[in-house]
C-alpha cells in the first residue's frame, strides 16, 4: 500500500501536469482558431466522435505553406549549430586547461565555472546588451584603440545571438569535457610521444578521440536548448533574427493564434526528438562503457 502511494503521487503529478498538457497542445494544433476566449474551439464536450470529426491538419498546412515558418525552423537550426560549434571552440581549451591544472586548484576552477550557471540567465544575457550596443563598451574600446573608426553594429544582429548563446551555455560544454579529460590517463600521451608523435599529433590522435564522449555530450547539452531558445534572440537578436522559440512566443502572445502556436510547438518537438534520442543513446553507451 505504501509502495503504491510512493509511486502513485509523483506519477499522477507528472501525468496531469506534463503528459496531459502536452496532449492538449497536440489536440489544439489540430483545432480551428476561434475569436472567443479561449481562442480555440473547445470540442471536447461534444463527445469523442465530434472531436475526431473536427480535427484537421489545417494549421500544419498553413505552417507548411508560409515561408516564415520554414525560414524560422531552418535559421534556428543554423544558429544552434553555429553557436554549438563556437561554444566547443571556446569551451574545449578551458576544460583542457582545467584538467591540466594542479589538483588543488581544480575545485576552485570548477566553482568558477559553475558560479555563472547559478546566476540568473536573464541577467547574463542582459549584461551583453550594454557591451555590444553601438555606444557600448566594446565599440568604445575598439574606437579608442583605433581599430575601427565607425562603431560596429553588433547588438540586434545574429552575431550578438551567437555571443549570447556561447556565453550562457559555456558551462554546459566545459563540464562534460572536463569530466572526460580529467579521467584521461596521462601516460597514454607520453606513450604516443615516446613512439614519435609530436605534442600536437598526440593531442589530435590521443586526447581528442579519448574525450570524444565529453565533446558529444557537451554539444548536445548546448544544441538542444539553443534550438528552442527565446530570451537570447529576443534581447540580443534583431528583427531579422528568426528563431522558432521567438516565433512561437509571438504567435501566441501577439497574434493570439493558439492553434498555430501549438502546431509550431509540435513541429519543434518533432525536430528535437532526433538529437534527444541520439544524446540519450550516447549517454547510455557511456554508462555501459564505465561499468
Amino acid at each position: 500500500m505504501r509502495r503504491f502511494t510512493l509511486i502513485a503521487v509523483p506519477y499522477a503529478w507528472l501525468l496531469v501536469l506534463f503528459l496531459v498538457p502536452f496532449l492538449i497542445v497536440f489536440k489544439i494544433s489540430l483545432s480551428d482558431a476561434a475569436v472567443a476566449i479561449p481562442p480555440y474551439t473547445p470540442n471536447l464536450k461534444d463527445g469523442l466522435g465530434a472531436l475526431l470529426a473536427e480535427l484537421d491538419f489545417e494549421n500544419f498546412a498553413f505552417i507548411a505553406s508560409d515561408d516564415l515558418y520554414w525560414k524560422a525552423y531552418l535559421s534556428s537550426l543554423r544558429i544552434a549549430l553555429i553557436s554549438t560549434f563556437c561554444t566547443l571552440l571556446v569551451g574545449y581549451p578551458i576544460a583542457y586547461g582545467m584538467a591540466k591544472a594542479p589538483e588543488e586548484w581544480r575545485p576552485t576552477l570548477m566553482m568558477l565555472v559553475i558560479l555563472p550557471f547559478w546566476t540568473s540567465f536573464l541577467i547574463r544575457v542582459y549584461a551583453w546588451m550594454g557591451i555590444l550596443s553601438t555606444e557600448g563598451l566594446l565599440n568604445q574600446l575598439l574606437i579608442g584603440m583605433g581599430v575601427i573608426s565607425e562603431p560596429l553594429k553588433i547588438l540586434n544582429t545574429n552575431t550578438a545571438v551567437y555571443i549570447g548563446i556561447v556565453y550562457t551555455y559555456l558551462p554546459f560544454m566545459i563540464l562534460p569535457i572536463y569530466a572526460a579529460l580529467e579521467r584521461l590517463d596521462e601516460s597514454l600521451n607520453e606513450a604516443a610521444e615516446d613512439l614519435g608523435c609530436s605534442r600536437t599529433q598526440a593531442f589530435w590522435l590521443v586526447t581528442i578521440p579519448l574525450s570524444k564522449n565529453g565533446i558529444i555530450a557537451g554539444c548536445f547539452l548546448v544544441f538542444i536548448p539553443a534550438l528552442g531558445e527565446f530570451v537570447i534572440p529576443s534581447l540580443l537578436g534583431g528583427s531579422g533574427t528568426l528563431m522558432i522559440g521567438k516565433v512561437l512566443w509571438e504567435e501566441f502572445f501577439n497574434n493570439r493564434d493558439w492553434p498555430v502556436a501549438s502546431a509550431v510547438a509540435v513541429i519543434l518537438l518533432l525536430i528535437l526528438i532526433i538529437p534527444i534520442v541520439l544524446f540519450q543513446r550516447n549517454q547510455q553507451k557511456q554508462a555501459e562503457a564505465e561499468q
Binding site: L14, L17, V20, F22, I28, G228, W249, A261, L269, I276
Partner: peptide
C-alpha cells in the same frame, strides 16, 4: 518506462513548449 520518460523529458523540453502546454491545461 513512461514514468522515467516523464522524469527526463522536461529536462530537454524547450521552455516555450512547457509554458504553452501548461497554460492550455
Amino acid at each position: 518506462t513512461l514514468f522515467s520518460g516523464m522524469i527526463y523529458a522536461p529536462l530537454v523540453m524547450p521552455e516555450v513548449i512547457t509554458g504553452l502546454s501548461l497554460l492550455l491545461l
